[in-house]
Design a protein around this nucleic acid. Structure first.
Lengths: 194, 194
DNA sequence: TCCAGAACGGCACGTGCCGTGCCGAAAGGA
DNA sequence: TCCTTTCGGCACGGCACGTGCCGTTCTGGA
């Protein structure tokens, strides 16, 4: 099992090569043939592990980020949310994660299997962590008990992804700070209709 | 010019065929060859008009929707915004526009030319109309003068697109209503820091 | 120690679509 | 009438797909 031409070690080499090559030539021009050639691997070795180019990239990116978006809990919900969303901005706004993640989300738009995998293994866990942190804050009386916390999550993430995917303007801390401040003016009030 | 095998008439036939075929087999399997064959056209005739499959679909979709998202102005900003976002939900949530638009946005993630065209010809005009309507309301004293209206636009559109592209759950009027209500609790207050 | 089976790299194949030439026909304008 | 533009049809080389097959190398159990 210590042999780098077998098993899990081979898997890691292929994923690393995918990230390298993807960063160099972009996802659109990335082909499984090219990854195989660069990694010194047969195409079967890749197809045996992943059903598609998108699935390969998803695994590669997940192996890269390794829960770097874990949630802090200092007791200050605003500060913690801000820390976390800044980390997301830094991750999504810079290579190697940013451009490749953008392409992956794009690919997921016409590959339902990939979309499901992306949701299950990245989006949903991240969202759940945000909601969990918000629930803690609500239970500690820092937020209005009436506010829908999954809606808060959407209002926080939505504009970020909108800028990331649609307008494609650079992501900045300043931008998400504005979203965050607007969100908190709504969440701190005791608005019964939400 | 009345001959349907020339000029603008030919263009419309090709766009209509693109929508038909795209709806039948999905964007992923859609090929320019297939469109040409179905439309009884040569491939040159298509390549002369559009640089890529994405550009062809963009034109086709724009020819379909024909400013159906024009903004109402009844004097009630909340009602008008609601009417408009409901129209967007109906458009994006149903065939033929919805699935093809989703694929188009996906394609734009690894085609900068297409992303720019999509922004210039659809996203930006729509956003500008929303902001313009919000400005009118603000000038009439219906909104806090301190609130950043382009931020309001992002908070309204962001969660919608997040659900459309990322979680891929069905779009409902109820969902955008919740976003809208949350947004208005922030905009109606006089919060000086925004 | 040996051996069966799994995993591997390399190669070749058929397929589908790409984008681009070339041809002759048809349409429209001067 | 003639010339230019647009068109459909066809063929081409190129590329990456996904899948076979072969011979080799590694692994784990007998």
């Amino acid at each position: 099992m210590t042999n780098p031409s077998r098993g899990a070690a081979r898997t890691e080499v292929i994923m690393r090569t995918t990230l390298e090559l993807g960063q160099e030539i972009g996802y659109a021009k990335l082909s499984i043939e090219a990854v195989a050639a660069r990694a010194g691997a047969g195409k079967h070795t890749i197809y045996r592990r992943w059903p598609s180019k998108g699935a390969l990239l998803l695994d590669s990116l997940l192996s890269l980020h390794k829960s770097s978006l874990d949630y802090p809990d200092t007791g200050d919900i605003f500060a913690d949310l801000r820390t976390q969303i800044h980390a997301a901005v830094d991750l999504m706004g810079n290579p190697p994660f940013g451009p490749l993640y953008q392409a992956l989300v794009g690919e997921a738009q016409h590959d339902p299997q990939l979309a499901a995998a992306l949701n299950e293994r990245f989006i949903t866990p991240q969202a759940a962590m945000t909601v969990a942190r918000l629930e803690t804050a609500r239970d500690q009386g820092q937020l209005s008990p009436a506010f829908d916390l999954s809606l808060a999550m959407a209002i926080l993430s939505g504009p970020l992804y909108f800028q990331f995917l649609i307008t494609q303007e650079p992501l900045t801390h300043e931008y998400v700070d504005r979203v965050l401040r607007a969100l908190f003016t709504g969440m701190e009030k005791s608005s019964s209709s939400l």
